[in-house]
């Protein structure tokens, strides 16, 4: 056997090289990057560093406070308890309006899915209202409800209603007719089919609707509270903006993101509990 220069095997393949190349042993730094959480931690560190550098360069803490200033503001707001009061208020408004929206929209969507006649009556009205964003209702709702806690609840319920009703309807309509037929042939009654076959097969789509509704509602609450409520996260953020207390404004922006994120995490958990058969289910 002739020993040709096997070393001639194209050693350095840049990104252009074929995928699935022979597994090469990664160096220690590369291996560290593979540990879950390392890359996100590094990119956050990079982000904070950039922010800090930008703030130092800008030198105006009203425009752009430094990370320690914002963190300090967060701590002091937490120590006051003010942060928890506002977050709790916004969160409870969110929960109340989500509950109302679910109680109205899910049965309506379900019924529309089962009855073509009802859908024909109701669907065009929904399609007429849907383009009018929740935000656009704020001035009129201010007249009706005045400044206070009812306004954000109304706006959020309205915003949450549409994804809920549409996803519920789509879920019920999407229930596999073969499953329904199979249940029929087994002599299962209509009501039982609805409860045992249609509901479970619509549930994953409904859950996606719940998550979309929550994201929309959480986005709308900030606008609603900012304009028309004397309390809550949206109010607080604007209040400190007027006082030019920027560190607190930024701290509240962080809290809004955090609460929104946690609420979605909770729903994802619920999704896994209720519909464990949809792996990695859903959004994004």
């Amino acid at each position: 056997m002739e020993k040709t220069q096997t070393g001639a095997k194209p050693a350095s393949r840049d990104g252009d090289g074929p995928a699935n190349a022979a597994p090469q042993r990664p160096g220690l730094p590369a291996m560290l990057l593979e540990i879950p959480g390392v890359v996100p931690a590094l990119s956050f560190a990079g982000f904070v560093a950039l922010w800090w550098a930008g703030a130092a360069w800008n030198g105006n803490s009203i425009q752009l406070p430094t990370p320690p200033e914002v963190f300090g503001a967060l701590v002091s707001l937490a120590r006051d308890g003010e942060l928890f009061t506002n977050a709790g208020l916004s969160l409870s408004r969110l929960i109340v309006s989500m509950s109302i929206a679910v109680l109205i929209a899910v049965p309506l969507g379900f019924w529309m899915g089962l009855s073509e006649t009802l859908r024909r009556y109701v669907d065009p009205t929904i399609e007429l209202l849907r383009p009018i964003s929740g935000i656009a209702w704020i001035p009129l709702a201010l007249f009706i409800f005045g400044v206070g806690g009812v306004l954000p609840v109304f706006i959020m319920t309205y915003v949450a209603f549409f994804p809920l009703v549409m996803n519920t309807f789509a879920g019920v309509r999407g229930a596999d007719p073969k499953l329904v037929a199979a249940a029929r042939t087994m002599g299962v009654g209509r009501l039982r089919i609805t409860a045992r076959v249609v509901l479970p097969s619509a549930l994953p789509t409904i859950m996606v609707g719940v998550r979309l509704a929550l994201a929309g509602a959480w986005s709308a609450i900030i606008a609603a509270e900012l304009i028309g409520a004397p309390t809550g996260l949206g109010f607080a953020i604007e209040w400190y903006r007027e006082l030019l207390a920027s560190p607190k404004v930024f701290a509240y922006v962080g809290v809004i993101a955090g609460v929104g994120y946690l609420a979605d995490l909770a729903l994802q958990w619920l999704q896994r509990r209720l519909t464990p058969w949809t792996v990695g289910g859903g959004l994004s």
Partner: peptide, 23 residues
């Protein structure tokens, strides 16, 4: 590198940015 940062900004509603935009 970018995904963790993007994902943490995603739940920040545009309206929450408003006060900062005004500033």
């Amino acid at each position: 590198v970018l995904e963790p940062i993007i994902e943490s900004f995603r739940p920040v509603a545009p309206m929450a940015i408003l006060p900062i935009a005004i500033l």
